[in-house]
Nucleic acid binder design. Structure first.
Lengths: 344, 344
DNA sequence: TCGTTTAATGTACACGCGTACATTTTGTCA
DNA sequence: TGACAAAATGTACGCGTGTACATTAAACGA
């Protein structure tokens, strides 16, 4: 096929290759002749052969947790991150390879590189478990480029152990809780997610900090555990109602919107309304926050940019050949809506 | 590398290949020796070279519409479909290649095949526009295997023009509207999405049909136009309120949950509550339906299975070598929740 | 004009696998 | 035991690029 193009253009196959890849000096006239010949014959180079010859897969792998039909995770922020990753990958000429990972069946990430299936890897939904951490450490040891998104791991010495892109959930959490304090709340329930996510720890730290700054007592019975699903928020209805009715709680800060909505629904069934009987703040600012009634005060996380930046750090080859493991932390922003109107 | 394995096992490279691919007759003892050697050396065949030699990319492409940061589409059903596709692809040993398509910048699908980037293609979010239809027709002409998901095109002669997997939205719509009639509603507003989606036409047809069956007059002023976004439902608040307050409407059937929720929010601001002042029914049964208050009556669509079946039809090579363009239509199911409680 | 640098193109081959075909070994039956 | 088929393995090559190196054409300075 390439041979035919070469013949039609009256050049060698090497020149065809040079023209199509824009490498090496080529006379303008020759270039045009080749391009015309390629167009006429409808020649499309085989990506298979190109990648084989270049020894590059041209793929950016994206690992995501996947439990069939059980959307434990908000599909919202995954698709936002994916969008950002995809945008950047496309800009850099890479294709996006999706790799679904079943929870307790850890993939051997290193093999993906050894098989040349991917040139770089972005890992979503990682947790701080022996399994996940072990897989990442092995990957780090192998020296292949990868980036963990929206999750951080304890530093090893001075530096974070892996390349990381995360958002500043500590500040986000502080802003949320401070806002609740500012509108006059002083007994703030915190519904957190599982501790395997650094997200959860960050939010907890922010919560603790604001309480301390505000001279409020940290009461462990106000810290409840969910798993980031709506139902896990809903399941806390009994406790929440009791706290509110007893005057032991006047606000709820949930670690994500889904749990906030679950709690809101449960309390509504008991006659307690967010924004009236208690203030409510979620986190993530998923589309669900705007779908709720009353609309949910929440914290906007730049998931799209996070994906973009992760992809950029992995793929850009100019200037920065060295892969730094340093972590990038993006700012978040509190968005105040009806669920936490002032109490005055 | 393979050479080293061969030497260590005391066989030729061809035998190594045979063992690893399970082809041809191989003595059990030899097989074990080769596997042991491969394991010892940590040999992982290069997928690049394999694919090149086999002239198969091993990729299943998934095209999805993408507008940066503007979730016009519900991310919900895309991720459901993706999950189904990914599950099946993995089972068949294929990788998933994501291909984002900007709205008015149509990709040349045929080139994906010519470049051997994908072995088959699943297309999500296609519309019945000259652009989309043209691209698909060209693809069909090229003879490459592809499947359109959740969208159908007018039949050409007797058969549908492309391989299609869709859900029975006509029946779903009928079930929804009939339910509204059954609970005593007779003036049912229908909020539909853009006509470029066969989804919209199907729902409209079902709506019309039930009205006719029930002896209800079809009034064009009760058929409103949205674009499947929450805000487009919200934007209809004025009209909806007027209709309801005038007694010209006692129920709303929205073509998806997002618009239903938008309308619900708008009407709530005017003091009208779903399930009390009017019955409301959405469509898709996205997680948003359960997040809404009151929870939304909706129609469950088996997005996961749709993706699975599309992938299966494209990838399975046993038995069925012929690619039939016939369309598969999956059943849907009405789910009754609080937003359409009986009016008696 | 000629020598010398530089631009432009051609030639030849490697990349790592799968596999058709040739060859050798094993097994079977008389 | 020998003839023959079947099983097991080895040899050789093609797949379609990219690119190092060799070669030729053009440009340039004296």
């Amino acid at each position: 096929m390439r041979q035919q193009v070469a013949k039609l253009a009256g050049v060698s196959e090497a020149t065809v290759s040079r023209v199509l890849n824009g490498v090496g000096p080529v006379k303008e006239e020759t270039k045009q002749r080749v391009l015309a010949a390629a167009a006429e014959l409808g020649y499309v180079p085989s990506a298979l052969a190109q990648r084989f010859a270049r020894k590059k897969s041209g793929n950016l792998g994206v690992v995501l947790p996947y439990v069939p039909k059980v959307p434990l995770f908000s599909t919202y922020y995954f698709s936002e991150m994916l969008g950002g990753i995809g945008e950047e990958a496309q800009a850099q000429g890479y294709d996006l390879l999706m790799l679904f990972r079943k929870p307790e069946q850890p993939r051997d990430y290193t093999a993906l590189f050894q098989a040349h299936k991917v040139d770089a890897l972005i890992i979503l939904g990682a947790r701080d478990t022996a399994l996940d951490r072990g897989a990442l450490e092995e990957l780090e040891r192998s020296g292949h480029p990868f980036c963990v998104l929206n999750q951080r791991y304890a530093a090893r010495g001075n530096e974070p152990p892996f390349m990381t892109v995360d958002a500043d959930h500590w500040s986000g959490s502080r802003a949320a809780v401070r806002h609740l304090v500012d509108i006059g709340c002083s007994r703030i329930v915190f519904i957190n997610g599982p501790a395997q996510y650094s997200n959860s720890l960050d939010r907890r730290a922010g919560y603790d900090r604001v309480l301390a700054e505000s001279g409020l007592e940290l009461r462990e019975e106000l810290v409840l555990a969910g798993n980031y699903s709506r139902t896990s928020g809903y399941a806390l209805t009994d406790q929440l109602e009791a706290l509110i009715r007893a005057g032991d709680a006047d606000a709820i800060f949930a670690a994500n919107d889904r749990m906030a909505i679950g709690a809101m629904q449960g309390l509504r069934e008991r006659g307690l309304e967010a924004g009236r009987d208690y203030a409510l703040c979620g986190y993530d600012d998923a589309d669900a926050a705007r779908m709720a009634s009353p609309q949910l005060t929440s914290v906007t996380v730049p998931f799209h940019e996070m994906g973009q930046i992760a992809a950029r750090r992995l793929l850009q080859q100019d200037g920065e050949p060295k892969i730094s493991a340093a972590s990038t932390i993006l700012p978040v922003q509190l968005v105040i809506r009806e669920s936490s109107r002032s109490r005055q």
